[in-house]
């Protein structure tokens, strides 16, 4: 075999391996989607969105309380996490060289790696025990704590991508440092930051562990923030663990709704980014 044809063969083999790895990586995703959709779709109907869970032994019913609960919990989480996450991202990008910034960065990375069950136990200690009450608030706090490091790190990275000349332009017009950051640098990075926030949302919407000790669960519909509240993930977990075939079907439907929410979030993030970027030409 000539030298070049050997090299061509090796190259083709290499490309082939890469393609194969991509396929292998995609297989689990495809299988998950296939099972969730094919199993979930059977029990998915209007009642699933509008009805409350049926009592044990009775067929039908829905997860209206859990769907609303998940929306409330993620909204609460964002209310806690978005301002704190973005502001600490601003701090670490602005004062990147300082010790405090390195400490914050390290803390954020560590927090990101803390198992979610530990965060649940922690919030149980500070927000459930003192009030002797599981609550949506505590659940939102737990989710928020998980979102903060993701948002903070994304914000920092995106702010650092904004060219320094942009900031100098603002300073040269008589802007203070804070003004330059908040009126020019941050808006310039906003599309990316929005994407980061939505992806963080998608990530925590699927969390179960931090909710078990905080928001707990609720068989009834509630929007009260000081009461235990249902969520899709906990409901799916409970139903999937039950011995009833009907509840298993409901759990699949719940899983499908969850996956759809995450999917919609990702699509929304992409669209929002594209929109904003198109607006700036």
């Amino acid at each position: 075999m000539s030298r070049t044809s050997r090299r061509k063969l090796l190259s083709a083999l290499f490309v082939g391996f890469c393609a194969l790895s991509v396929l292998l990586a995609l297989v689990p995703l495809a299988l998950i989607l296939f099972f969730v959709v094919s199993q979930g779709i059977q029990s998915l109907n209007v009642a699933f969105f509008t009805h409350m869970p049926a009592p044990v032994g009775e067929a039908g019913g829905g997860m209206a309380n859990a769907i609303v609960g998940t929306l409330i919990l993620t909204a609460l989480g964002s209310i806690f996490a978005v301002p704190i996450g973005i502001l600490s991202g601003v701090y670490t990008s602005e004062y990147g060289g300082t010790r405090l910034a390195s400490a914050i960065r390290f803390a954020a990375d560590t927090l990101n790696g803390v198992p979610s069950i530990v965060i649940g136990v922690f919030v149980y200690g500070i927000a459930v025990l003192p009030f002797k009450q599981f609550s949506a608030m505590a659940g939102g706090l737990a989710l928020g704590i998980m979102m903060i490091p993701i948002i903070a790190r994304t914000t920092e990275e995106l702010l650092l991508l904004v060219p320094g000349t942009m900031r100098e332009g603002a300073l040269a017009l008589g802007a203070t440092r804070a003004r330059a950051v908040f009126s020019v640098v941050l808006p310039a990075a906003l599309p990316g930051i929005i994407t980061g926030v939505v992806l963080a949302l998608a990530r925590i919407a699927g969390e179960t562990a931090p909710l078990l000790f905080t928001a707990f669960n609720n068989r009834f519909f509630t929007t009260k923030l000081n009461q235990p509240i249902a969520s899709l993930t906990v409901q799916v977990y409970t139903y999937a663990n039950s011995p009833y075939a009907d509840w298993h079907r409901q759990a699949w439907a719940g899983a499908l709704v969850l996956v759809s929410i995450v999917f919609l979030c990702s699509i929304f993030a992409r669209l929002a980014t594209r929109r904003l970027e198109a607006m700036r030409g």
Partner: peptide
């Protein structure tokens, strides 16, 4: 003491807002 940079650095805002920026902040 105004400054114009080597590489133009308009803000990612509208033409109007770019010019209005300094007027607003001051």
């Amino acid at each position: 003491v105004g400054m114009v940079f080597q590489k133009s650095n308009p803000f990612p805002k509208s033409i109007f807002e770019n010019v209005a920026y300094g007027l607003r902040i001051n």
